[in-house]
């Protein structure tokens, strides 16, 4: 497999790129949903994301990427006691994956061979402390969705079957992409995504030409192209690390919290999850900008992506929920 298309070489689609960077700065924001037409670079961006993420340190051989030896689950075999740096895992959850494959199941080899009850970890275990990517998330089978909802909520995966009782941490950033024409997403799952962005093909002819040029260079002049853009990616990665540091020192004035609350109240978004996500996203954005305090402009920038999927659906509003958020932001924050 060749190296994926570099993240920084993606032309335009700033909102999508920003949303992914924000989750890399603060994974607690809770994932990104990318909705858009075909051929707009959704999956390209997600696959490029892996190269952008700073490595994490894990216990060697641990199936759930534990950070310390104390956290290695008791059922795990082959986990060493040294720490190694590995790239942040980005795990694909393919449509049609069986429940066993997602949650993990009985280890067939050991069950048949030794008659032992052993657990073989699934995709959720591999995605712990990393990203779980679902392409065509709106086509995902209902029973897998139920399962994900539960795990995403609790951060733990529980497998209970025939005397096999396993639990392990499964904290991951959920990234979904899909084409809204193919089907709607269940509101419960929608709510689990912290940010939501809508992508469209660029309308401007010069931008389009630039997209095609870069793609052509990637296909035909691979080495030079990767050399040029991997350097850019490294720059973004360094900036993400800096932002993680800055996030801890960032000041959140009361007025900003008040702004966030007023905004969510005016929009009538359900629950408090909107406020929390908006605040986290705005803080991550301020850190990304390397500012020292959270201001109104940060909130304005990220409000659409944090709130657009939390509004009550107005089936006949033509402009779409992004524009509605924009209007209310202009009203409330001036």
């Amino acid at each position: 497999m060749t190296a994926p298309f570099p993240f920084s070489a993606i032309v335009g689609q700033d909102e999508m790129k920003l949303s992914m960077i924000l989750t890399a700065i603060d994974p607690a924001i809770g994932g990104v949903l990318v909705f858009g037409d075909r051929g707009t670079g959704k999956s390209t961006a997600v696959r490029a994301l892996a190269a952008l993420l700073p490595p994490i340190s894990v216990v060697r051989g641990c199936p759930v990427n534990s950070a310390t030896t104390a956290e290695v689950p008791d059922w795990a075999r082959g986990a060493g006691d040294t720490l190694v740096e590995v790239p942040t895992p980005v795990v694909d959850l393919p449509l049609g994956a069986s429940e066993d494959r997602v949650t993990g199941a009985l280890d067939i080899e050991r069950a048949l061979g030794a008659g032992e009850r052993a657990f073989q970890p699934g995709l959720l275990a591999r995605a712990n402390r990393g990203y779980l990517y679902i392409d065509e998330v709106n086509l995902l089978e209902d029973h897998i969705v139920d399962l994900l909802l539960d795990v995403a909520q609790s951060g733990r995966n529980l497998v209970e079957r025939d005397g096999l009782s396993i639990t392990h941490p499964a904290r991951f950033v959920l990234v979904g992409s899909g084409n809204p024409e193919e089907g709607e997403l269940r509101p419960q799952l929608l709510d689990r995504f912290g940010l939501s962005v809508e992508v469209a093909s660029p309308r401007d002819i010069d931008t389009r030409i630039e997209v095609i040029r870069r793609r052509d260079a990637y296909d035909n002049d691979h080495a030079a192209f990767m050399l040029r853009w991997q350097a850019e990616d490294a720059g973004v990665r360094a900036r993400i690390l800096t932002a993680r540091g800055a996030l801890r020192k960032l000041k959140t004035p009361d007025s900003a919290v008040r702004d966030v609350a007023a905004l969510c109240l005016a929009l009538g978004s359900d629950g408090l999850r909107g406020e929390l996500t908006l605040l986290k996203a705005a803080r991550a954005y301020a850190a990304w900008r390397n500012d020292t305090a959270l201001t109104r402009s940060h909130i304005k920038t990220v409000s659409a992506m944090a709130l657009r999927h939390r509004l009550r659906r107005d089936p006949l509003d033509e402009a779409g929920s992004g524009a509605r958020v924009g209007r209310v932001v202009a009203d409330v924050l001036g």
């Binding site: 093909s201 389009r208 997209v211």
Partner: peptide, 12 residues
């Protein structure tokens, strides 16, 4: 044609 795959294919 909205999709950016089409011109990519045409160039190839």
């Amino acid at each position: 044609i909205d999709s950016m795959r089409a011109p990519t294919f045409a160039i190839r």
